[in-house]
C-alpha cells in the first residue's frame, strides 16, 4: 500500500473513532465535573475532576438494591442457560426419531421476536403468579437458541474416538457430557456466559412490564425512574449512566473475541 493511501486510511478511521468515542468521552467528562450542564460554552477538559456526582448518585438511588437485583437475575439466567443449552446442544448431536421436528421447532421459535410475544407473555407470567419477581423477569431468557446451536457445533467437533473410548471405560452418557464434552468446549461455554449475561443485564422492556415495586427494579429501570424524578439536569444522572454501562463494557472488553464470535456465529459460515 502506498504511503498516501495509508495516511488516507488512518485519517478516515481516526475521525470515525473520534465520532464513536465523543459521546462516551462527553458522558465521562460530565460525570466527573457536571460542567457543561451549567457552563456554556462547555470546556473540553474538565477543570476540576471529582467523584461528587458518583457519590450523589450512590446516595440518591438504592444502588446496592438495583445492582444486586440485576446481578442476581443475570446470574440465574447465565447458569440456567449453560445447563439447558449444553443439554439441548448435546441431545442434538445425536440421532433420534423426531430430531428434524425438534430442529424446525427451534428454527420456528427463532423467527418469533420476543417483542411480538410480550402481551401473552405478560398474561402468562401473571397466571403463574410471577409478576414482580426475579424469576418472572428471568424466565423468558432462560435459554437462547443461538447458544444451543453453538454448543451443538462445538460438541460435534469433539473426536468421536474419544467418546467411544469413554464409553468403553464405562462412562454414562451424562458423564460423557459433563466430564468430556463440556470441558472440551470452553469457547462455547465462554460465549454462552457473555451473551446471556449482557442480554440479561441490558434488557429493559420485559422488566418494565413485569416489575411493579421499586424493590424489584433492575438497573435500566432504576435509570429510567431516576430520569423521571430528577430530569436530566444533574450530573449524577450521567454518573449513573456510566455505572450502569460499566459491567457489560468490562465483560465485553475482557472477552471481546468470544463476544464477537458468538454474535457472528452462523454469519461466518454464509
Amino acid at each position: 500500500m502506498s504511503l498516501r493511501s495509508r495516511i488516507f486510511t488512518h485519517a478516515i478511521l481516526i475521525s470515525v473513532c473520534f465520532f464513536m468515542l465523543l459521546p462516551i468521552y462527553w458522558v465521562i467528562k460530565t460525570s466527573v465535573s457536571g460542567e457543561n450542564l451549567f457552563v456554556y460554552p462547555p470546556s473540553i477538559i474538565p477543570a476540576d475532576p471529582n467523584m461528587f456526582y458518583y457519590v450523589e448518585a450512590w446516595y440518591t438511588v438504592d444502588f446496592v438494591q438495583l445492582f444486586s437485583n440485576s446481578f442476581l437475575i443475570a446470574t440465574l439466567v447465565v447458569i440456567v442457560n449453560l445447563v439447558l443449552n449444553a443439554m439441548a446442544g448435546y441431545a442434538l448431536t445425536k440421532h433420534f426419531p423426531g430430531k428434524s421436528l425438534v430442529m424446525s421447532f427451534l428454527l420456528m421459535s427463532m423467527m418469533i421476536p420476543f417483542h411480538a410475544t410480550i402481551i401473552p407473555a405478560y398474561l402468562l407470567t401473571a397466571e403463574l403468579g410471577l409478576l414482580n419477581s426475579k424469576l418472572g423477569i428471568a424466565l423468558p431468557a432462560l435459554s437462547h437458541i443461538v447458544c444451543i446451536l453453538l454448543f451443538k457445533s462445538n460438541f460435534e467437533a469433539v473426536p468421536s474416538s474419544l467418546i467411544q473410548a469413554a464409553r468403553l471405560d464405562g462412562l454414562s452418557e451424562w458423564q460423557i457430557l459433563t466430564k468430556i464434552m463440556i470441558p472440551l468446549s470452553k469457547p462455547a461455554v465462554a460465549t454462552n456466559i457473555i451473551l446471556s449475561f449482557i442480554w440479561s443485564w441490558n434488557e429493559f422492556l420485559w422488566p418494565l412490564i413485569v416489575v411493579r415495586s421499586p424493590d424489584q427494579q433492575t438497573m435500566p429501570l432504576g435509570l429510567v425512574s431516576f430520569l423521571a424524578s430528577f430530569e436530566d439536569t444533574t450530573g449524577s444522572l450521567y454518573a449513573f449512566c456510566v455505572l450502569v454501562v460499566l459491567p457489560s463494557m468490562l465483560v465485553f472488553l475482557l472477552a471481546q473475541k468470544d463476544f464477537i464470535r458468538g454474535l457472528t456465529s452462523g454469519a461466518t459460515k454464509g
Binding site: L92, I112, T117
Partner: peptide
Amino acid sequence: LLPALMVYLFYRIIP
C-alpha cells in the same frame, strides 16, 4: 431437550 423446549414453548410458541 425438554427443559429448553419448554422455555420456547411457553415464551415463544404459545404466546
